[in-house]
Amino acid sequence: MRSSRALFHTVALSLVMTAGSLAATAAHAADKISIMVGGYEKQIYLPAKLAEALGYFKEQGLNVELLNEPAGVDAENEMLAGAVQGVVGFYDHCIDLQGKGKFVESVVQFSQAPGEVELVSSKHPEIKSPADFKGKSLGVTGLGSSTNFLTQYLGVKSGLKLSDFTSVPVGAGQTFIAALQQDAIQAGMTTEPTISHLLKTGEAKVLIDMRTMAGTKAVLGGTYPAASLYMQASWIKDHKEETQKLANAFVKTLHFINTHSAAEIADRMPKDFYVGDKEGYVKALENGKAMFTPDGVMPEDGPKTVLAVLSEFSKNVQGKTIDLSKTYTTEFVKNAK
């Protein structure tokens, strides 16, 4: 009888321990937050990798996994499918998605300028303005991406129809460079450090520059909030504690960017991000560092500028009532410690 009881207690204890172990494993898995970055080697999305390198996620008790996806539109789709909890990408997706009936909010606004440049191949000196895009193939990271949005805006604003030019998804970095070298695209929109590389080799020249606030306002008509951490409104509502911790980590990262030199920031980044030219990487960051917000707060006039740009060409927002107050939140950055 005693042996039977002992056996019963042993089995029961084993079951309890197994259940506890499974619960702990499940809890640990639930603690992981996956964030997809629309190309984390791009300087415009530098805060994502920098926050990881500085240990700010761990400092907040977060288990954050950064995943790399060259095109922001693909990162967006991964989030909508539930494969990731957040995206580091352009704020304009929050407006575009609301036009499709999906509610997504920018939680931390990284930048107030796109940090993008429209480059023209040196083989095509006939392209002197966006009006000359007619009949050309133009490089973008992906169809439906922010680079595609901005390219379409430039063309339509210059009097062209969307059918007058072709957007070609070529990604960024080496794939963009190869497309330009092979004349698969005659011009294209990209970011640092790709810009500096192509200017240094003489294979391209700048047509439109949106790396600075002044250049952005001249082209787009106002402050243009771009790189951000955005998430589904429903996830934010159900995970306020985690969202606050993410905001804490990113606001601290933005403060680091605002108070340290480009060289000090570059030293924290993976060496392969330099693309073999650390000096050029640092110089590009030095010139573009001012695009980052110091505190993650959405610029007050920014959302209206983005909506005005998208309204020029996008059927997703044309004729729709867009509630801009539901495309971003400042709650978490203002409470950030």
Results as ranks from 00 to 15, higher is better:
1 M>L: 14
2 R>F: 14
3 S>W: 13
7 L>M: 13
10 T>L: 15
10 T>K: 14
15 L>G: 07
16 V>D: 03
18 T>V: 15
20 G>R: 14
23 A>C: 11
26 A>L: 12
26 A>R: 08
31 D>C: 06
35 I>C: 00
35 I>E: 03
36 M>V: 15
38 G>S: 14
39 G>Q: 01
41 E>H: 14
41 E>C: 09
42 K>A: 15
44 I>L: 10
44 I>R: 13
51 A>N: 04
53 A>I: 04
53 A>C: 04
54 L>G: 12
54 L>F: 12
59 E>G: 06
59 E>N: 10
60 Q>E: 15
61 G>P: 00
66 L>C: 07
69 E>W: 05
74 D>L: 10
77 N>I: 12
78 E>C: 04
78 E>S: 13
81 A>C: 02
81 A>P: 00
82 G>N: 00
85 Q>T: 09
87 V>E: 03
88 V>P: 06
88 V>C: 15
94 C>V: 14
96 D>Y: 14
99 G>R: 09
99 G>T: 09
99 G>H: 07
101 G>L: 02
103 F>P: 00
104 V>L: 10
115 G>N: 05
119 L>W: 12
120 V>I: 15
121 S>K: 02
124 H>D: 10
132 D>P: 02
136 K>A: 03
138 L>N: 03
141 T>F: 04
142 G>N: 02
144 G>Y: 05
145 S>N: 04
150 L>S: 07
153 Y>E: 05
154 L>G: 01
157 K>A: 13
163 S>P: 01
168 V>L: 07
169 P>K: 02
171 G>Q: 02
173 G>I: 05
173 G>E: 01
174 Q>D: 13
175 T>R: 10
176 F>Q: 00
181 Q>W: 03
183 D>S: 12
186 Q>H: 15
187 A>S: 15
189 M>H: 02
195 I>S: 01
196 S>P: 02
197 H>K: 14
201 T>L: 07
202 G>Q: 10
203 E>V: 13
205 K>S: 15
208 I>F: 11
210 M>R: 13
212 T>S: 15
215 G>T: 08
217 K>V: 15
222 G>F: 06
222 G>I: 09
222 G>E: 07
231 M>T: 05
231 M>Y: 08
239 H>W: 00
239 H>A: 00
239 H>S: 00
241 E>K: 06
242 E>H: 10
252 K>M: 13
253 T>P: 09
254 L>M: 14
255 H>Q: 09
256 F>D: 05
257 I>G: 11
258 N>W: 11
262 A>M: 09
262 A>S: 12
264 E>P: 05
265 I>E: 01
266 A>E: 00
266 A>F: 08
266 A>S: 10
266 A>R: 05
268 R>G: 03
269 M>R: 12
272 D>P: 01
276 G>F: 03
279 E>R: 11
284 A>H: 08
288 G>C: 09
289 K>L: 15
290 A>R: 08
292 F>D: 04
292 F>Q: 04
294 P>Y: 11
295 D>S: 13
296 G>V: 07
300 E>C: 01
306 V>A: 06
307 L>D: 02
308 A>H: 13
310 L>N: 12
310 L>D: 02
314 S>E: 03
318 Q>C: 08
319 G>T: 12
321 T>E: 12
323 D>N: 14
323 D>Y: 03
327 T>D: 03
331 E>M: 01
331 E>D: 14
333 V>D: 06
333 V>F: 10
334 K>P: 01
336 A>Y: 14
